[in-house]
Write a protein that binds this DNA or RNA. Structure first.
Length: 608
RNA sequence: GGGGUGGUAGUUCAGCUGGUUAGAACGCCGGCCUGUCACGCCGGAGGUCGCGGGUUCGAGCCCCGUCCACCCCGCCA
């Protein structure tokens, strides 16, 4: 740690080693653990840099009671866990045989000559002991204590270093860090907005940004050319282990760029981060997988590429069978795909029933299976000629001891079910290696059909540029199949998690209007929601595109944390509450009055 | 909104088929200890069994409701 030599310290606890032997040092920190032997006391002193062993001793021989008692020695008997103290003492090499190889400073110890207690501590609500797991509710309530744990410190350091690597790299690439408003207007992403009432404009609300999407495009129109921001985003949706109501994005946008430019830029960024954090040389270019191929081979658009078990089309072989479920699915335009159940031939009937129930919970009508042993075993074997079963096994790479799984249904059901089962099987069979595997998913469809609203909607967002061919189609105006249009959107996937996504944007106001029309947005609505962008596009907007990376998720994956909460200093619970501060909370009636707000909460106590 | 798991000492947990005084470890408090490092030894305190209701002679345990935390689906790039 950078030296700020003062009365508190001239060195960090974790920084002393044999080269300091004989030197006098001043250190400050928390009392971690003490081992009181009566006349000899060891005390582990902890600060951000690490832990050092302090020794309080009268001398090498003699009884305590017979020796003059220095005042500090009285004080040190009172030292309890998490007291904050400053000590002055001499660094000495530890007596032979008492070195501790488990800690960085284990070769030395500090003989204390002066002790000052800066701050006492009550007994903690939980122990800061890596051997005891504490409930998350408790950890979050006393997050400032939880943060003292080395594990949390490590996560915060990794997060910081990631941000630093981002800033260093993007600065080198001539990107400008520019802030965008937090009090803003609802952006047209799909999620629910967090709203902030306006006092100045009664009845009106700001929205907290779901992302700075529109503003970063305006920065391009504004000639900033290359923008980035490590920015907080807000989405009022239900939470998960990898989702928080407020989360951080590494947001980027650049002018005069195409898909390749953004991808190469981001690969350089990721490379830089991994080198800085993990010392790993990430191989580039990162593999690119068109969306259609990802769906075909893995059943989803964020495949975990660290292992095989790819989905295989079985339509040709299924049609050679007399199995009605397969034949019906095919004749009604559906799909039959297979998945390898590695090492699952030994599953009991009951376990297979559970597996089937899982598949049904995911929307499948059922799950067909064939065990591969010395022979094939399955209740549906009678519908298949033996050579067909053999070919299915070949296609799935099934060896004796494996099981083949099949789902026949509408395409999205087949993919949905099998892609999840693929992950479940890989986890259960423990075949996922621990390396990091990135992949780009490219050539996304522009639109997808929304069953609920019975209309097409933008997959990415409505400012995503179609491919050049499809721009011609759209501007040509003839009747076009919206489901076939492709976009210049791309996602970055790491180990099966989507960690970033972006696109080349539409920079032509006519095209933009046309695209909005295709998804059924009335001109008036478009005008009301983001007319300012449409207008900006009229005044010479350069071609531009960008990408945003989920910082929390990226850091979570790099640290191996089990939850996004472990890489956020003060995260919220699954109910979006903060156990530490008590947010959200009721507010004064006066505050509400000033905002022209009257509550209408059923069965709820009125505000304090 | 739906499904699942959990809630017992400060903490992490055990608590059998419903049975008398609810346990352990760590922590905490007091004492002892000169080479420990998750120190050790002796002694002690500490409980609204999440909350509310019900069944029962009797409930930590069974039933209903509710709250909280976590995981998942829906939702969300």
């Amino acid at each position: 740690m950078h030296r700020i030599n003062n009365k508190y310290r001239d060195i960090g606890c974790g920084e002393i080693d044999v080269t300091y032997a004989g030197k006098e040092v001043t250190m400050s920190g928390w009392v971690f653990r003490s081992r009181d032997h009566g006349g000899l006391i060891f005390c582990d002193l902890r600060d951000r840099t690490g832990v050092a062993q302090l020794v309080f001793s009268h001398g090498d021989t003699g009884k305590v009671s017979e020796l003059p008692v220095p005042s500090f020695f009285v004080a040190q008997h009172k030292l309890k866990a998490e007291y904050v103290i400053t000590i002055k003492g001499d660094v000495r090499i530890r007596p032979e045989g008492t070195e501790n190889p488990d800690i960085a400073t284990g070769g030395v110890e500090v003989y204390v000559k002066e002790l000052k207690i800066l701050s006492e501590s009550d007994a903690l609500p939980f122990q800061l002991d890596e051997h005891i797991e504490i409930s998350e509710a408790n950890r979050l309530k006393y997050r400032y204590l939880d943060l003292r744990r080395p594990e949390m410190l490590k996560n915060m350091v990794t997060r910081h270093k990631t941000c630093k690597a981002v800033r260093d790299y993007l600065d080198d690439m001539d990107f400008l860090e520019i802030e965008t408003p937090v009090l803003t207007k609802s952006t047209p992403e799909g999620a629910r907005d967090y709203l902030v009432p306006s006092r100045m404009a009664p009845g009106c609300f700001y929205a907290l940004p779901q992302s700075p999407q529109l503003f970063k495009q305006l920065l391009m129109v504004g000639g900033m050319e290359r923008y980035y921001q490590i920015v907080r985003c807000f989405r009022d949706e239900d939470l998960r282990a990898d989702r928080q109501p407020e989360f951080t994005q590494i947001d980027m946008e650049m002018s005069y760029a195409g898909v390749d430019d953004v991808i190469i830029l981001v690969e350089g960024l990721i490379k830089n981060i991994f080198k800085y954090i993990k010392g790993e040389e990430l191989p580039t270019p990162i593999e690119r997988l068109p969306y259609d191929e990802a769906m075909e081979r893995f059943g989803n658009d964020k495949p975990d590429m660290r292992f095989g078990l790819e989905l295989k089309d079985m339509a040709d072989l299924a049609s050679l069978s007399s199995f009605k479920v397969f034949l019906d699915a095919l004749s009604s335009g559906g799909r039959v795909k297979g998945l390898l159940g590695k090492n699952m031939a030994g599953l009991s009937r009951r376990e297979i029933d559970l597996l089937t129930a899982d598949a049904q919970a995911l929307g499948a009508k059922g799950l067909a299976w064939i065990k591969v042993k010395d022979t094939f075993e399955s209740p549906i074997l009678k519908f298949f000629p033996e050579d067909v079963v053999r070919q299915m096994a070949d296609r799935l790479d099934a060896a004796p001891g494996d099981m083949m799984l099949f789902v026949a249904d509408k395409e999205h059901v087949v993919n949905d079910v099998l892609s999840r089962m693929r992950l479940d099987i890989a986890k259960k069979q423990n075949i996922i290696p621990s390396n990091d595997k990135f992949v780009w998913i490219t050539d996304f469809p522009l639109f997808e059909w929304n069953e609920e609203d019975a209309r097409f909607q933008a997959i990415h967002h409505p400012f995503t540029s179609p491919t050049d061919e499809d721009i011609a189609h759209i501007m040509g105006g003839s009747n076009i199949d919206l489901s076939k249009l492709k976009s210049k959107a791309y996602d970055l996937v790491l180990n099966g998690s989507e960690i970033g996504g972006g696109s080349i944007r539409i920079h032509n106001s006519e095209l933009q209007k046309q695209v909005l029309k295709l998804i059924g947005m009335a001109e008036a609505e478009a005008e009301e929601r983001f007319g300012f962008l449409l207008e900006a596009l009229k005044y010479g907007a350069p071609p531009h595109g960008g990408l945003a990376i989920g910082l929390d998720r990226l850091v979570m994956l790099m640290t191996g944390a089990q939850s996004i909460r472990d890489v956020i200093a003060f995260p919220k619970t699954q109910k979006a509450a903060c156990p530490l501060s008590g947010a959200p909370s009721h507010v004064d009636k006066k505050q509400l009055r000033e905002l022209y707000i009257r509550l209408n909460v059923p069965d709820e106590k009125p505000a304090d």
